[in-house]
Amino acid sequence: MIVKVRGILLRFTDYENEIEVDGSTVREGLAALTERYPTVGEVLMDREGSVRATHLIALNGEQLALDELDREATEDDRVDIVTAVSGG
């Protein structure tokens, strides 16, 4: 699947904005992403390993709830990570 990363997160992926990752579910794709870019994991996940509420995950444009991350994803699917708001 292709994980699409935007603005605020780009500096944690070495400014790659479309990243091809392996995995058969969205969760596996995110795990592959954070393995490749460990700082993304620190930003995206809380201490329990759950996606922080300040980030939204979408599969082909459909926003997923945290309990929907086990949805299947093929190599042609697109996963978007959108940071809800940022302060500072």
Partner: peptide
């Protein structure tokens, strides 16, 4: 915003 403490300064109202 209450910042979540990550490096991206993400937060929620």
């Amino acid at each position: 915003l209450r910042l979540s403490g990550d490096l991206a300064l993400s937060g929620a109202p």
